[in-house]
């Protein structure tokens, strides 16, 4: 159907973002193609190596998945922050990606988990790393008028690995994040062997704090290391002044504290899994 409409139709699933865009006339389409009732696209499963999420997996499904709580707790925590129950029941993780907001809780966690996407278009299927799917604020490299995400996938958690997600917001529910942070960390005998740290919204897309990651790798996981790593994150991020989220200066300061707490939380889980 998308092919027939040649770019003038757009996919809709949960619609929790898209219907607002239509209402506010921010976007208009000649046709919408509803995929929300296609059976089988809402599966969450593990093949032992990687976890695969279908494109219709909702925030509520993530929140209720024991598999994801065990293997991707950062994602599990992130999705529980999105909207209220009614929104989480409809909103899909794939929509969180295609909406391409740098603050999207689910996508921030998936960036830290190094998620990959399978995308089906007129030419066939292609693979794309989630972190490469962003072109700008609200702009995704995935063209929902010509292609769709068919799978979101990432590696399951191994021994010696852990993740965490935290956010800062004005209220405990139904609030957009002022800042959010997801951390994935791998360790061996008390030393960090690999790390991925995602922070939002501090850039036009979910931000990978690569300098802080590079600093962390090879270091012992002590309070000193964590403090220095969080300071590196504060250096790297460039939050804007925002009426909704607070001043850029304030958020830059707070990024250090939020990152520090998130890294600590991830490390505490590391110890738990080693014990």
């Amino acid at each position: 159907m998308l092919l027939r409409e040649d770019g003038k139709a757009r996919l809709i699933a949960g619609g929790t973002d898209l219907i607002l865009e239509i209402r506010d006339h921010a976007n208009s389409f000649e046709a919408l193609v509803d995929v929300s009732r296609i059976p089988g696209l809402d599966r969450i499963h593990s093949d032992g190596e990687r976890i695969h999420l279908g494109p219709l997996v909702t925030m509520t499904q993530v929140e209720e998945s024991l598999l994801l709580k065990q293997h991707a707790i950062a994602l599990w925590e992130a999705c529980s922050w999105v909207g209220g129950p009614q929104i989480r029941n409809r909103a899909t993780l794939a929509g969180n990606i295609v909406s391409a907001q740098p603050a999207a809780d689910g996508a921030i966690a998936l960036v830290a988990l190094n998620a990959g996407l399978k995308i089906l278009g007129f030419q066939g299927e292609r693979d794309l790393m989630l972190s490469d799917s962003y072109i700008g604020v609200g702009r995704s490299a995935i063209d929902a008028s010509r292609e769709m995400i068919t799978c979101i996938e990432f590696e399951g958690q191994h021994q010696g690995e852990a993740s965490a997600f935290r956010r800062m917001a004005q209220r405990k529910a139904m609030a957009l994040p002022q800042l959010n942070c997801a951390v994935w960390i791998a360790s061996s005998v008390g030393y960090c062997t690999n790390a991925r740290i995602a922070v939002g919204p501090v850039a036009t897309m979910p931000f990978r704090a690569r300098q802080a990651e590079a600093y962390l790798v090879g270091k012992p996981l002590t309070d000193e290391t964590i403090t220095a790593c969080a300071a590196a994150i504060q250096e790297e991020v460039q939050p804007r002044d925002s009426m909704l989220r607070g001043s850029g200066l304030y958020r830059k300061e707070m990024a250090e504290a939020l990152a520090r707490e998130t890294i600590k939380l991830a490390i505490s889980r590391l110890e738990g899994s080693l014990a």
Partner: peptide, 27 residues
């Protein structure tokens, strides 16, 4: 509110609660 913030329009569709302002009738 008409934009998914207030929940006044909540209905239960096929067993789950949703905001009816963020769902299309055709869906």
């Amino acid at each position: 509110c008409g934009k998914g913030d207030c929940g006044a329009c909540t209905v239960i569709m096929n067993g789950i609660s949703i905001d009816s302002c963020l769902t299309l009738a055709l869906q």
